[in-house]
C-alpha cells in the first residue's frame, strides 16, 4: 500500500492525453463518498464493489486516509471521478 500512486505501472489504460506519472492525494478534502472505489472496481472487475478497488479509503479519527494497492495501474479513473478534488492525476 502506498499513499500516492506513482511508479512505472505495468499496464496503462488511461484514455486521457499524456502519461499519468502520479496520483496526488489530498486526504483533507476527502469526504468518504467512495466514487473512486466504485469506478475503480467497475473498470477492472466489471462490478461496483468497494472491496475490490485498487484504491483504499480508510476512516481515521480525523478524516479519511487514501492509499493505493500494488495492482493500481495509474489509469486515473479515480481522479477523473473525484468531485471533491481529493485526487489529482499528475502528467
Amino acid at each position: 500500500m502506498r499513499t500516492t500512486a506513482g511508479r512505472q505501472a505495468p499496464e496503462r489504460r488511461s484514455k486521457l492525453p499524456g502519461k499519468i506519472i502520479e496520483i496526488e492525494t489530498h486526504p483533507s478534502r476527502c469526504v468518504g463518498c467512495l466514487l473512486c472505489q466504485l469506478i475503480c472496481s467497475f473498470s477492472y472487475e466489471k462490478m461496483f464493489n468497494p472491496s475490490k478497488a485498487r484504491i483504499a479509503i480508510e476512516r481515521g479519527d480525523d478524516g479519511f486516509k487514501i492509499s493505493f494497492t500494488d495492482e493500481c495501474t495509474l489509469c486515473g479513473r479515480c481522479a477523473q471521478f473525484c468531485v471533491y478534488n481529493a485526487l489529482e492525476a499528475k502528467r
Partner: peptide, 12 residues
C-alpha cells in the same frame, strides 16, 4: 469541522 458524504454522493 469537516464535511461528510454518503457513498456515491457528489454533493456530500
Amino acid at each position: 469541522k469537516r464535511r461528510l458524504s454518503c457513498i456515491s454522493c457528489p454533493i456530500g
